[in-house]
Simulated scan of single mutants.
Amino acid sequence: MRFLYSIRPFASKKYANDLSVKAILALSKKDFFKELEFLIIGDGELFKETLKPLRGFKNITIQQKFLQQGEIAKLHKEYGIFLNPTRMDSQGVSRDEASSSGLVPITIASFKENKYKTYANDLSVKAILALSKKDFFKELEFLIIGDGELFKETLKPLRGFKNITIQQKFLQQGEIAKLHKEYGIFLNPTRMDSQGVSRDEASSSGLVPITNKVAAIPEFVDENSGMLVEAEDYMGLAHAIEFLYKNPKEFLRLKDGNE
């Protein structure tokens, strides 16, 4: 049996890659272990350290790299099980039922690492700058939270806008759940299938995700639960926010689609 584990970053413990390692080590003690085949692909500052216990097993292939979309689709056809643990706290995710009152909160949140360009924080910045030229821009409220070596450089063009709050820090799970209740849109561009946990937590809380149609993302976000734009299309991100602003009924339809 072939296990495809991890086309994902190894940059944070929230991705729970250590749990996969422990699970595989537990399986290595079973008689049938040699009949299993594992492929582990990813990268990040924790990659080598996390996977060190698995090196030496002949049935485990480890590749330190990120994949292109076509490569991911090809591998999906070759493997039967996708091992994808997470530390997402489903008990900490809740929906604000008051959101169905017809009042649309045009508030946009983005919680991301600013360490790798794959997270596409620069696309968020370009989208917001495009929106800043619109008459309704002052009616929008943005909250951007994260950290990383690219944080200050990437967000520099947005400083000075009164309706944009920037906080350089990482959040605890309880803080994220609380903020989910205060915001209506989750701006989550990407250049790969990254930040899936953050996006899905936001969706579970009733936020409408706006992200890119890359990698496996269309399998988790569709026209009934969020808005997808093409890769690198920052104007598409801006247009999606504008569309939700001008079409409150559609915003509520997508919000309800995440129930």
Rank of each mutant, 00 (worst) to 15 (best):
residue 24 I to H: 05
residue 244 L to V: 08
residue 49 E to A: 12
residue 126 K to A: 12
residue 210 I to G: 04
residue 221 V to C: 06
residue 173 Q to D: 12
residue 97 E to V: 10
residue 226 G to R: 09
residue 204 S to G: 15
residue 53 P to C: 00
residue 41 I to F: 00
residue 250 E to T: 12
residue 142 F to I: 01
residue 95 R to F: 12
residue 63 Q to N: 07
residue 100 S to Y: 14
residue 50 T to K: 01
residue 242 E to G: 03
residue 67 L to K: 02
residue 259 E to D: 06
residue 3 F to Q: 07
residue 227 M to I: 15
residue 135 D to E: 13
residue 127 A to F: 08
residue 209 P to L: 03
residue 104 V to I: 11
residue 178 K to D: 14
residue 178 K to F: 14
residue 30 K to W: 05
residue 41 I to Y: 05
residue 187 L to G: 07
residue 220 F to E: 14
residue 233 D to E: 07
residue 215 A to T: 09
residue 195 Q to Y: 13
residue 98 A to G: 14
residue 13 K to V: 11
residue 75 L to E: 06
residue 1 M to W: 02
residue 228 L to S: 09
residue 124 S to C: 04
residue 205 S to Q: 09
residue 254 L to M: 02
residue 143 L to I: 14
residue 214 V to Q: 05
residue 46 L to I: 10
residue 109 A to V: 13
residue 81 I to H: 10
residue 191 R to K: 11
residue 226 G to Y: 09
residue 74 K to Q: 13
residue 199 R to E: 13
residue 35 E to W: 04
residue 190 T to Q: 11
residue 55 R to H: 00
residue 150 L to W: 07
residue 33 F to A: 01
residue 235 M to P: 00
residue 112 K to I: 02
residue 199 R to H: 07
residue 105 P to K: 10
residue 11 A to C: 08
residue 53 P to E: 05
residue 123 L to S: 04
residue 38 F to E: 05
residue 125 V to D: 09
residue 194 S to D: 11
residue 91 Q to D: 14
residue 105 P to T: 02
residue 79 Y to K: 06
residue 91 Q to C: 13
residue 166 I to Y: 07
residue 86 T to W: 08
residue 18 D to Y: 12
residue 240 A to F: 10
residue 27 L to Y: 09
residue 57 F to N: 02
residue 210 I to M: 06
residue 206 G to Q: 12
residue 73 A to T: 12
residue 75 L to P: 08
residue 100 S to F: 13
residue 33 F to Q: 09
residue 178 K to I: 06
residue 215 A to S: 14
residue 170 F to T: 12
residue 81 I to P: 00
residue 116 Y to E: 13
residue 152 K to P: 00
residue 138 K to N: 08
residue 92 G to T: 04
residue 248 P to L: 08
residue 154 T to V: 08
residue 139 E to N: 13
residue 44 G to V: 00
residue 84 N to T: 14
residue 118 T to V: 15
residue 119 Y to F: 15
residue 77 K to F: 01
residue 152 K to Y: 02
